[in-house]
């Protein structure tokens, strides 16, 4: 009897937690998600952020990045693009512990332009992914980092 009751409570707790998680994740669409900013490799990040999506290389995305960043703590980036109907822009740094640096949603009354400053752990590619409608485009550029900017 004791064990049965325990099992029942266990089931109840699991069920309610999963229901809570399910509803929470539905409501929190648009909220900051820890799952997006997990420590993991770039391959896994891309896989989880863009499951089964084809990300085409595009010359319509222009990145303004330094060739060499002396200080990995502050790497300036400017993104401009001539792609129509851009919905969101992702900035990723390949070898950062958390590869996803930031994601932006862009309204159509904004120019396709973003300026920001971010941190880089070491020399690697910076990848910018743009979502326009149901299509994904990417551009990448290598940045040489003299002093790493994550942790330390």
């Amino acid at each position: 009897m004791q064990i049965r009751r325990r099992q029942f409570i266990k089931n109840l707790v699991t069920a309610s937690v999963s229901i809570a998680l399910f509803t929470f994740s539905k409501i929190s669409f648009g909220k900051w998600l820890l799952a997006d900013f997990k420590h993991r490799s770039i391959e896994k990040t891309l896989q989880e952020l863009f499951p089964d999506k084809v990300i085409k290389k595009s010359r319509k995305i222009k990145l303004k990045l330094p060739k060499t960043a002396e200080n990995g703590n502050v790497v300036p980036i400017t993104i401009t693009s001539t792609i129509d109907n851009i919905e969101s822009v992702y900035i990723l740094s390949e070898k950062n512990p958390v590869p996803l640096v930031a994601k932006f949603t862009l309204d159509h009354s904004l120019e396709p332009y973003i300026g920001a400053r971010f941190k880089m752990q070491e020399t690697c590619d910076v990848i910018v992914i743009v979502k326009a409608g149901e299509e994904y485009f990417q551009a990448r550029q290598k940045v040489k980092v003299t002093i790493g900017g994550c942790g330390g």
């Binding site: 900013f37 958390v98 640096v101 994601k103 932006f104």
Partner: peptide
């Protein structure tokens, strides 16, 4: 117009 989600990869 824009909402930005970021991690600690953004500079100080």
């Amino acid at each position: 117009l824009s909402e930005c989600h970021m991690g600690f990869g953004i500079s100080k």
